[in-house]
Design a protein around this nucleic acid. Structure first.
Lengths: 218, 218
DNA sequence: ACCTCCTAGCTTGTATACAAAATAACGCAT
DNA sequence: ATGCGTTATTTTGTATACAAGCTAGGAGGT
């Protein structure tokens, strides 16, 4: 058993995974007794886990009425993406100033992977590496609170299965934006890096809108 | 008794107050049994409350070692203020665009109160109204997620008793910045409003720094 | 005298049992 | 048949009891 942490923490981790993977559907009611039985634990640690998930926005607890998996409306996305754009823009800004030549090399290596997966039309791996890339940037920015807030929002965004890269042409755009970002970082142009990152996020929002519109039409 | 909510929620609210007011000192260990006894509840709802407070950053839970009141280091302030500056800047931006003439009148009324308390050297009331003013702005911006995140950070900041307005001259500066903000809002100059608000927050950070330096010297 | 190991206690983590409130089901009256 | 009221059941909220890990203090050895 690698898992030596508390049952509460284990429950938090597992439920997050299930919520993000939509094994637990948005809006679904969570029955404490049934869920506890399913996880093989008692209600006490499970309830503590649900309180944590509630504070982090994954579920909503309606007093005396139960616990429900959170759902993100299109309106939420419209509100969250601009915030993310600001925060990640700030990250890019800091990285442009702080990163060492070595750091930039590591980023470049990740970017190369992105190019490769894009060329191979491997959307899943592209997403994966993209995540790692953004994560690495946050690490380099070295602002723990910024990192914390972005992390919260990122996890939340995953509640909605937005896969905007599936929109034709979007992956190429995304890649071009990443290229421009790497350029700005190498030039140590903080203002440009921030602006590019901002627009990168906002472009994702635009892509999501058109996907939603397309789905609406169908 | 107006208070009909769960014991857990009551505990959360009360503990927040105690932590913010420093009735519970930063770094202090919270003994579950003793605290539960003190609050007149059992450990079960108290533990749920502590989990929530932990997720919101008010306390840190070290597994099997206990729960400790969080403390903000000067480093944390240096990280948080720039984020706040961005977020509140964004709020100002949105308000400049969205606010109706009526909204602006309400804000102006609040600003008048600020001027009055400043003239009367009533620092406490100035802080109070200042809080209401910023809160009103967030309301007008109408971005619930932005509001949520700013709210979290604001409460966190109150962990450190930073009273930068006590620095001589700072209150007058603060007032001037508020005046400039109102001007920009009336002119519907979103970019200017955003910039002014950003600098308003960053100026607070600078004031805090010099207070810390002064305290260091003493 | 100091370090180590072991034990005793205290504190956190978990399970179960109980209380209270909300939902569902049933019967009655219209 | 339908709507309302009452009761039964389910489910959340809370308390208590139990298990397991950490801390501290003392005994024994070097």
């Amino acid at each position: 058993m690698i898992n030596k942490s508390s049952l509460c923490q284990q429950a938090v981790d597992l439920l997050k995974k299930r919520i993000i993977s939509h094994a637990l559907a948005p809006g679904q009611r969570l029955d404490e007794a049934a869920l506890a039985m399913d996880l093989g634990i008692s209600r006490t640690p499970l309830r503590e886990a649900l309180k944590i998930l509630s504070a982090e926005g994954f579920v909503h607890i309606k007093p005396r009425r139960g616990c429900f998996v959170a759902e993100l409306t299109p309106g939420d996305l419209e509100e969250i993406f601009p915030i993310m754009a600001m925060l990640e823009g700030r990250v890019a800004h800091e990285v442009a100033i702080k990163a060492t030549a070595d750091d930039l090399k590591r980023l470049a290596a990740l970017h190369e992977k992105l190019e490769k997966h894009a060329a191979g039309h491997d959307v899943d791996r592209y997403y994966e590496v993209n995540y790692v890339f953004h994560d690495a940037l946050q690490e380099l920015a070295g602002n723990r609170w910024l990192q914390h807030m972005i992390g919260d929002l990122r996890r939340l965004l995953r509640l909605s299965r937005h896969r905007s890269l599936k929109l034709e042409g979007r992956q190429q755009e995304s890649l071009a934006e990443h290229r421009a970002l790497m350029d700005a970082l190498r030039r140590r142009d903080a203002a440009a890096a921030e602006e590019i990152m901002k627009n990168h996020l906002l472009a994702q929002l635009v892509a999501l809108r058109s996907m939603a519109a397309r789905q609406e039409a169908a």
